[in-house]
């Protein structure tokens, strides 16, 4: 069986890492388009400040803290993988998954309260943007957590340690998107 190529001789970068950067690039266009559209609408609608005042800054801030902390555990997992310490990388990835679950838990509570107050996705354009942007981001959190669980399972046995870095790059990007979503959806009132 031919081994799977994992390094591009011309590019000088592992194929997996190159692929993840392409994924990140395409995600920039997806989230960037959404955020730019939001900003254009927001500037045209001063009344959206009133709608944004109904978002929960404490929940948004807590989720930002959770994601920043999970990014720290992800980069430490990458560092452990580079040292060849698979079990430690797996444990740190487990911490990152916990962060993802914490984020989703806070988000679920927050959305439940908002929906109970009548702020549904069809309430008005602001809430449509809010649920669309945060929802797509949430799907990325779920996908990241699932992939991390698979990578952590292999890493625990010392296999495919290079994947720890790859899922880390993706996870940091998910964190990065939230860094911009937080002020746009929660702070700008």
């Amino acid at each position: 069986m031919r081994p799977i190529a994992n390094t591009r001789s011309a590019a000088g970068i592992p194929t997996g890492r190159l692929a993840v950067w392409w994924v990140v690039g395409s995600e920039i266009v997806i989230f960037g388009g959404l955020l730019v559209a939001y900003i254009m609408y927001r500037l045209s609608h001063p009344e959206w400040a009133g709608h944004a005042a109904n978002t929960n800054v404490v929940a948004g801030g807590l989720n930002t803290l959770i994601l920043l902390s999970s990014s720290l555990s992800a980069v430490l997992a990458h560092q452990a993988a580079e040292r060849g310490d698979g079990p430690r990388a797996a444990r740190l990835l487990g911490l990152t998954i916990l962060g993802a679950l914490g984020f989703l838990t806070v988000k679920s509570i927050e959305w439940t309260m908002e929906i109970q107050h009548g702020f549904t996705i069809t309430a008005n354009s602001f809430w449509s943007f809010y649920y669309t942007a945060a929802g797509i981001h949430g799907l990325h959190v779920i996908a990241g957590a699932i992939i991390m669980a698979i990578v952590a399972r292999d890493a625990r046995e010392g296999r495919e340690l290079h994947r720890v870095e790859l899922i880390g790059i993706y996870w940091h990007f998910v964190d990065l998107v939230w860094i911009f979503l937080f002020p746009l959806l929660y702070i700008a009132k």
């Binding site: 990014s71 992800a74 880390g168 911009f180």
Partner: peptide, 16 residues
């Protein structure tokens, strides 16, 4: 927003 840009830079530079 200014701080968000700085935070994004730090994440991209040091974590990514």
């Amino acid at each position: 927003f200014g701080v968000a840009v700085v935070k994004a830079f730090l994440v991209a530079k040091y974590f990514m």
